[in-house]
Computed example of a mutant assay.
Amino acid sequence: MVNNFLTTLNITLIANRNLKKMEARAGEAIKKSSTASSNKAAIDAYEKDME
Rank of each mutant, 00 (worst) to 15 (best):
N16T: 11
D44L: 00
D49K: 15
K32E: 03
A29I: 15
A41F: 00
I30P: 02
T12Y: 06
E47I: 08
A41M: 05
N18H: 13
A24C: 09
Y46C: 14
K40G: 00
K31N: 05
L13W: 11
T8F: 10
A41H: 06
N39M: 02
R17C: 13
A24W: 10
R17Q: 14
V2M: 02
E47Y: 09
N39Y: 09
K21A: 13
S38A: 11
A42Q: 05
L19M: 10
S37G: 02
E51K: 01
K21D: 14
A29G: 06
K40R: 07
A15E: 02
Y46D: 15
L9A: 11
A45L: 07
A24M: 09
L6F: 02
A36I: 12
N16L: 08
T7H: 12
A45T: 07
K31D: 06
L19R: 03
N10F: 14
G27R: 08
S38Y: 06
A29F: 12
L9M: 08
I43F: 02
E28A: 09
A26L: 12
K32C: 00
L9H: 02
N4W: 04
M50I: 01
D49V: 15
K32I: 02
A36T: 03
T7V: 05
I30T: 06
D44F: 09
I11W: 13
N18R: 09
T35Q: 14
L19F: 06
N4H: 12
S38D: 00
A36N: 06
S33E: 11
